[in-house]
Design a protein around this nucleic acid. Sequence first.
RNA 1: GUGGCCGUAGCUCAGUUGGCUAGAGCGCCGGGUUGUGGUCCCGGAGGUCGGGGGUUCGAAACCCCUCGGUCACCCCA
Length: 430
Amino acid sequence: MPRVPDEVFRAPKGVHDVLPPESGTWATLVGRFADRAARSGYGLIVGPVFEHVEVFRRVGEHTDVVSKEMYEFEDKGGRALALRPEGTASVVRAYVQHRPTPPWKVWYVAPNFRYERAQKGRYRQHWQLGAEVLGVDDPAVDVEVIALLDGFYRDLGLSGVTLALNSMGDAQSRPGYVSALRAYLLDHASSLGSEFRERVEANPMRVLDTKVPDWQDVVGRAPQLTEHLSEPAREHFEQVQEGLQALKISYELAPRLVRGFDYYTRTTFEFQSDALDAAQNALGGGGRYDGLAEEMGGPATPGIGFGAGIERLVLALDAASSAPTTRRLDAFVINGLGDAGSVATTVLVSELREEGLGADRAYGGRSVPAQWKAADRSGARYGVMLGRDEAARDAVAVKDLETGEQVEVPENGLATWLSDRRELGSEVAR
RNA sequence: GUGGCCGUAGCUCAGUUGGCUAGAGCGCCGGGUUGUGGUCCCGGAGGUCGGGGGUUCGAAACCCCUCGGUCACCCCA
């Protein structure tokens, strides 16, 4: 008799399985994203799920993701490796290694790993859809990348999504701003305790988006990034905004949007959902990382991209109860001929599948009523029964499982009959 | 890593001040019905009461530890 699985035969802490039918939503989401990416000229990149630790250290030594959330390990060859905590670093590493001709436009679907306590919308392994463009400085590509993600969310009919937009400044404008910010914040840090002080000294920009109310007062009056942009950075930012406006993509300027990685420069953005009734409302986001390729030993190469969490998207869709529907089976085949019909059932199901129809069946010689029950539960549109009377006329009985209406259809015309009644717009199967 | 809440059947949950063989609904399987599902009736399978230790004549219940889930903080998708 089955025993309750021992603790080791459970998914490890903080990770989870995605099973049917929920996984059908996943398949649909990935398919739609793949379509959009392909239509925009992006190719799929499939990479390793782990890298040398140094690859990820480049995203920022002071970030939480690197300093306390990485799954680091040593392999049997003594290499210092880590499970990928985010997608961009791996893509840039691949760029530096293979030196493809720019513009290099890729998309991916891949898991990320972060060692942290799970909560709603936050897991130790989570999946992201993402896209990156390397080798293009043109603000048009900033606009394109944002439009790709915006269009994806629109395809899904997701409402209550806002786009927050900011510029983090370039190599010319950032150092001056950071020191001005640090000076201002330390000036006003006296009443805010040592933690505030430590974080300001490590990286003052990381406190800009704080949720601590006491800190927000001081931070809210601090100098803003966008007031310290160099002329080229300011111009770039304006052109990005013009492009978004031309595409009628609405956005809100978010001068304190800094995001979690140190590599960001100039354009940064984040899509937030108010449907996520949780602390984790960021659906997806990204930005430019113009210095990252060079830091990995490659040529100076501008880059921009984003990651979008699948789990959070599914949560947001559920909250809006607008999860995309998956394809239903066209037919469930019932063997009404007993043992003599066993092979015929196998053949008929196979023929329907070869014709591109969705077909399934029961196994194990179950009673006819039990097979009809299984047909009902399968969600199939029609029950198709191989019956003695119909077989004498080379036909099958076909019953609409919603209306209960039943007709007789010639067996050699069944696939056509079913195809004629397929629902339009049905998609990838579960 | 810190804190709150919660672990009883596949799921949702009852289980009296510590006391009979641990229950219900849904789901699952079979039968009524090897020629008809959804409704109905009958029957059945399924439990280390998260795990370990302790208190007690006796623990699902009380105590300790531990594992897990969940929500929040830090931070992020």
